[in-house]
Design a protein around this nucleic acid. Structure first.
Ligand SMILES: [Mn+2]
Ligand SMILES: [Mn+2]
Ligand SMILES: [Mn+2]
Ligand SMILES: [Mn+2]
Lengths: 222, 222
DNA sequence: AATTAAATTTAAGTATGCTTAAAAATATAA
DNA sequence: TTATATTTTTAAGCATACTTAAATTTAATT
């Protein structure tokens, strides 16, 4: 299988993230900001990846992963989430610590080692954030049916299923406001103009920014 | 602290290895062969590292690590050996597997994570090969007093303390000839011309090549 | 629709880490 | 000691992954 460089892997992962979530697109500028590089560098990389058939690239259009590119993304994502699970369960690292370390380790982890970690953990389907772990042949266990909190309907009650942020601030905020995986919440109201959503959780009202609620996933309480 | 690239870390580690063991020097050609690069590339890298004050470099002389360079070497070596110990004890990887994986992971391991691993393992002083693990402030626990098997005196009996090879062949050979850490052996005779050493181990005579005995360390049985 | 703003692309340049080929220095052997 | 072989260095070049600055295209405003 094609082995990409660290820069390439991070770039492709960023495109994948943009293709999936609703919080981000796959325009070069968006990818550039995500990775902390200039727009020029992103365009440059896009041209190179297009030549390697990892993305489809038309000038001034959004970047799109090819099947080969998607395979690279899922491979790295699998290793990322296996490391997060492992570091959390075995070494007891916190939510943002596991992400920070996995962001590095994911790039120098052999398929062999990934399998060993997966076996050790009992081949888990989700990581500690609730994100699904792709299988070694690039399938995503999407028995999930969760939606982002941004999509929650007013009046309905849900359980939090995924916290897909990455930095310390995000997890600190979630923790101090009882936004934890498994906790129930009721969506109250959408404020379109101010891009806020009002929820009630643990008898407390919260007004959350859409950018935040895009990274929080919920599931109908069964 | 200065963060070196992967290529730089491997290069400096190779110099360190040459400075320590008796099996290798630190001439550019030797380092190049060790790393699988050309002599030209090694000279090139030597010039760059000299500018960064990580090595002392005089043309046509051996490469010598500065104190800063040695610090880099010990930092990477610490992470390498912590990973080897961890992967062996927790995931049950074999001797050559742990080396292969640690050779990669060592470069993308934060000081933070290294400490977590060390703590988890109870701050071990040696890795599964018997090699000492440098401390986080760059000390090597050399309470060891072991010598290479090449230095063993005829008639004396020793215990094997370290197996410092790295590839599968090496460990397969050691295993099938009972060359394991802790096993006793008696040095019989040195053959200078043919560069062989005769030993007796588990009632079996073995004739070993000097290149091999340079990577096997022994200690006077106490 | 025309103007302005923002995003994207191109161009030129830099640092890293390699390569091959040729030149220079050192080591080995006759 | 001189010739030969080996090692080391220099030189030129290439791919990756970035930068800044300028040109171009697209998007947003008036
Ligand atoms: Mn993560
Ligand atoms: Mn990463
Ligand atoms: Mn090793
Ligand atoms: Mn390495």
């Amino acid at each position: 299988m094609y082995k990409a460089s660290i820069a390439t892997e991070n770039f492709i992962k960023a495109i994948y993230k943009g293709e999936q979530g609703n919080s981000m697109d796959t325009k070069p500028g968006t990818i550039a900001k995500e990775l902390g590089i200039t727009n020029a560098a992103a365009t440059d990389m896009a041209r190179k990846l297009a030549m390697k058939k990892l993305i489809d690239y038309e000038k001034y259009k959004e970047l799109k992963l090819t099947p080969d590119g998607t395979k690279v993304a899922l491979d790295v994502l699998r290793k990322h989430r296996l490391w997060e699970t492992f570091l959390h369960q075995v070494l007891g690292l916190t939510m943002h610590e596991i992400h920070r370390e996995a962001e590095l380790l994911e790039h120098l982890t052999s398929d062999f080692l990934a399998e060993k970690i997966s076996d050790f953990l009992g081949n888990p389907e989700t990581d500690p954030h609730g994100d699904p772990i792709p299988t070694d042949d690039g399938e995503i266990p999407e028995t999930d049916h969760s939606i982002t909190l941004s999509m929650g309907e007013p009046g309905n009650t849900y359980k939090i299923s995924r916290l897909s942020g990455s930095d310390k601030e995000f997890f600190d905020f979630c923790h101090s406001n009882k936004l934890e995986i498994g906790t129930s919440l009721t969506v109250q109201k959408h404020y379109i103009k101010t891009r806020m959503i009002e929820i009630e959780i643990q008898h407390t009202k919260l007004l959350l920014n859409i950018d935040l609620t895009n990274t929080i996933y919920i599931k109908k309480a069964d």
